[in-house]
Design a binder for these strands. Structure first.
Length: 469
RNA sequence: GGCCCCAUCGUCUAGAGGCCUAGGACACGGCCCUCUCAAGGCUGAAACACGGGUUCGAAUCCCGUUGGGGCCA
């Protein structure tokens, strides 16, 4: 491998990290790691009005949460466009001195007028080139591009994409107020950072020929490009807030595991045979940019939840307990001080929840006594007869020395047989008494985890709550 | 409006001319398991946008149409 791979992820800090951005970052990261290359994070903050320090923090935090590390970039200095203006100015000057760029003082109103005329004639607007040979000393700096021929973009995902130069024009590198334009900054940055592969969103494909022309004018080799399709909402339009949660942070706060997010995002538009679940190492091993789909992909919340649940089911118990704890607190509950005990509780919950948030809610009864009983079930279960049955259960449990799930189940079974009932009759009674609900983890495990004392308190309370008692 | 990209089940996709009476996964239905709910197992329904070519043969190649998305401001 002659040239080491150098890729970059270049977010604009105008908001939280969007899942589309996260996927682009992931693909860059996977590409870099697969090839043993370097990933650079660059902050594109030239839009000062919308870029904030806070957002940079959010993006960095979200990347870290996803486990995507970078080799160059923040917090080191020099990786923000606002810190690189000297570089842009120097390159602009070089182009101007070499005659590859020239100043233009055409008033914007005139340009607008021409644009409207072109539009009315159903033509592509092109700058007339009026100032090309005027030798102006100031104004907006335009790139002089060849009039004829075509500019070809070789894309690793789309193949060869051809653009007629007739459709392109002498675009503005630096505005008359001295600020460099987006496309110019990107080229200068990618060149000076020695980027070998530009992996970015499909929305930039149309800008690429302009950039290629700029590389040419600067005398630099054009990098490889890979334009990744966009993530769409259910209506096939670009995924945005109105489609629901779109920021990585929102999914983190909902309690989706980072490995689930990474797995889901990787499989959205990329595949490796029929495999659905990939470990981080498998992703790195199998990832090939050529396998990335060229068509847009709809973000499917249901599949993300399935992926999330898969990881919840398989994650290490101790780690699960650690991750669950803040969600329990966020639900206004107090988790047990004993982490092992929390892990045991989480163990009974893990295949019943799609997110950590759901898990905390589903396990609410572990941390507090039921404040109420599910009304419909209470009406049929917590009756005078229910009270008698509860009393029978209580009597047996009071005498039971071994409070294990196995023993508790045996007790319920024996009692049911003795009373001429089915196990479900007593199990549901205990369940609503202890959890307040009709659905919960296996009730005997719940009782065992709660312990004799707490279980009995709740069973007695339910007996008292029975109608006619 | 011009240019560019895209098009296999509802969704993510496998498929790189014969292996396809189109496979997997999510979601959905049924059955089984079962103390509830889940999870799990089995199973069902569900797609090559349309029209032309090329070829002995096309989901796969070419052209067009339609539809969607993006860029330009």
């Amino acid at each position: 491998m002659a040239v080491p791979v150098r890729v970059r992820f270049a977010p604009s800090p105008t908001g939280h990290l969007h899942v589309g951005g996260a996927r682009t970052a992931l693909f860059n990261w996977l590409f870099a790691r697969h090839h043993g290359g370097v990933l650079i994070v660059r902050i594109e903050d030239t839009d000062r009005s919308r870029s904030t320090e806070e957002n940079i923090g959010h993006i960095v935090e979200a990347l870290a949460w996803l486990g995507l590390d970078w080799d160059e970039g923040p917090p080191a200095a020099g990786y923000r466009q606002t810190e690189r203006f000297d570089l842009y100015r120097a390159h602009a000057e070089r182009l101007r001195a070499a005659g590859r760029a020239y100043y233009c003082d055409c008033p914007p109103e005139e340009l607008d007028r021409q644009r409207k005329v072109a539009e009315a004639r159903k033509e592509t607007f092109r700058y007339s080139g009026r100032c090309r040979e005027r030798g102006l000393e100031a104004g907006a700096l335009r790139l002089r591009i060849p009039d004829e021929g075509e500019t070809v973009v070789r894309d690793l995902i789309h193949g060869v994409v051809t653009f007629e130069r007739q459709q392109l024009d002498d675009w503005i590198l630096v505005r008359s107020d001295g600020t460099p334009t987006y496309n110019f900054c990107v080229v200068v940055d990618d060149v000076t950072m020695r980027i070998t592969h530009v992996i970015r969103g499909n929305d930039h494909l149309s800008n690429t020929p302009k950039q290629v022309l700029c590389y040419d004018a600067l005398g630099y080799a054009v990098p490889e490009f890979a334009h990744v399709s966009m993530i769409l909402g259910a209506d096939r339009s670009r995924l945005s807030k109105r489609h629901g949660a779109t920021s990585v942070q929102a999914f983190r706060d909902a309690g989706v595991l980072p490995e689930a997010m990474v797995n889901y995002l990787a499989r959205l538009g990329w595949s490796h045979g029929d495999q659905e679940i990939f470990s981080r190492d498998e992703l790195i091993e199998h990832f090939d940019i050529k396998d990335v789909s060229s068509s847009g992909a709809i973000f499917d919340q249901a599949k993300l939840e399935w992926t999330s649940q898969h990881y919840l089911k398989t994650i290490d118990g101790a780690r699960l307990a650690g991750l669950l704890e803040p969600f329990v607190r966020a639900a206004g509950l107090t988790p047990p001080a004993d982490r092992g005990r929390l892990a045991a509780m989480a163990d009974t919950l893990r295949e019943r929840a799609k997110t950590l948030k759901e898990m905390a809610e589903a396990g609410r009864f572990y941390f507090e006594r039921p404040a109420a009983y599910e009304p419909v079930a209470a009406r049929t279960l917590l009756t005078a007869e229910g009270a008698r049955r509860l009393q029978a259960i209580i009597a047996r449990l009071e005498a039971e020395p071994s409070f294990t799930a196995g023993a508790l189940e045996a007790i319920h079974r024996e009692l049911a047989a003795a009373l001429g009932l089915k196990l479900v009759d007593l199990a549901q009674l205990s369940r609503i008494a202890v959890t307040g609900r009709t659905a919960s983890p296996p009730i005997f495990e719940v009782l065992a985890l709660l312990g004799r004392e707490e279980s009995l308190v709740r069973l007695r309370a339910a007996r008292v709550a029975c109608a006619g008692s």
